[in-house]
């Protein structure tokens, strides 16, 4: 068997179901958004749903991108710090590794409930700090979506730590020790050994975080506000409308979300390809 053939055979079992499911999901959503598979009435090709949704799409897109970017930057920074602490050559913090592992299995729905209990006007934090609800900043449901970003950053920082830590654990210590033996200082070891080793994993995990945040609904719905709304919240609101004729608009918003996320994935892959360890 040629190596090429072998590689193809290795990839196919994953590729076939993925392509089938994603393809079917996208095609169904596009058909619905174009009025070809309505729940009521006759199928008819039209752009009405896209036109109707267009007004709010711009605001929703900007908000979604903003939330995803803020969450990703925070999650990447904290996650990297966690991974470094948990895999450090000297004084490795087992505790932080364990705590990060504790956070990963928390479903986002639960994380959102927890953040609400913590950050709301009358939440635990406000009570502990003795701040009255009026004086407490609007973290939950406020104009800056702080609680939403905090939840994503909290959960995803643990995910980033898991992915980056996995790579660093297997490689960094030996390289770091070699570099230390050769006389490299702490900063130099970080800059020239750890960071290049971690970069591909960090970039990959960040891209995953960004795209996940872009398409996720529960957290923004529970900790956000009714206007403006991010794309997924808008889509779910339209999909749940009492008027079934609005559903194609929900599909249009979902397709927009997916296309946006796909663009991010492609950009991330291009950027990652330039990094050394990522071919």
């Amino acid at each position: 068997m040629t190596p090429r053939r072998r590689a193809v055979l290795l990839v196919l079992p994953a590729l076939v179901p993925v392509a089938a499911v994603v393809g079917a999901a996208l095609v169904s959503a596009v058909l619905l958004s174009l009025g070809l598979t309505p729940l009521v009435g006759r199928p008819e090709l039209s752009l009405d749903a896209w036109r109707a949704a267009a007004g709010d799409l711009g605001t929703a897109t900007r908000l979604s991108l903003g939330i995803a970017a803020a969450s990703t930057v925070l999650a990447a920074a904290v996650g990297l710090a966690l991974a470094l602490a948990a895999t450090a050559a000297v004084r490795r913090s087992r505790l932080l590794g364990a705590l990060a592992a504790l956070t990963i299995p928390v479903p986002h729905l639960v994380g959102a409930a927890a953040m609400g209990l913590l950050l709301a006007d009358t939440g635990v934090l406000a009570r502990w700090l003795g701040v009255s609800p009026d004086a407490w900043p609007s973290l939950v449901g406020g104009p800056w979506w702080v609680a939403v970003v905090a939840e994503y950053a909290w959960k995803e920082s643990a995910f980033v730590a898991l992915v980056v830590g996995g790579v660093l654990a297997s490689r960094a210590r030996s390289y770091g020790e070699t570099a230390a033996l050769l006389g490299a200082g702490r900063w130099a070891r970080f800059r020239f050994v750890t960071l290049p080793l971690a970069a591909p994993a960090l970039g990959g995990a960040s891209a995953v975080t960004f795209v996940y945040t872009l398409g996720s609904y529960e957290v923004a719905a529970l900790l956000g506000r009714p206007y403006p709304e991010p794309l997924p919240v808008m889509a779910v609101r339209l999909a749940g409308s009492i008027d079934l004729a609005v559903r194609p608009q929900a599909a249009a918003v979902a397709v927009t979300t997916a296309v946006l996320a796909l663009a991010v994935v492609l950009l991330a892959l291009r950027a990652l390809r330039r990094l050394s360890a990522w071919h």
Binding site: A120, D121, T122, P133, G141, P143, G224, R225, P226
Partner: peptide, 22 residues
Amino acid sequence: WRGGETYPQSQQELDRLFADGE
């Protein structure tokens, strides 16, 4: 509440505000 610049998104959120005395 909050000067009307935003609203609770559900009855549950309103109930929470009521329960907490807001």
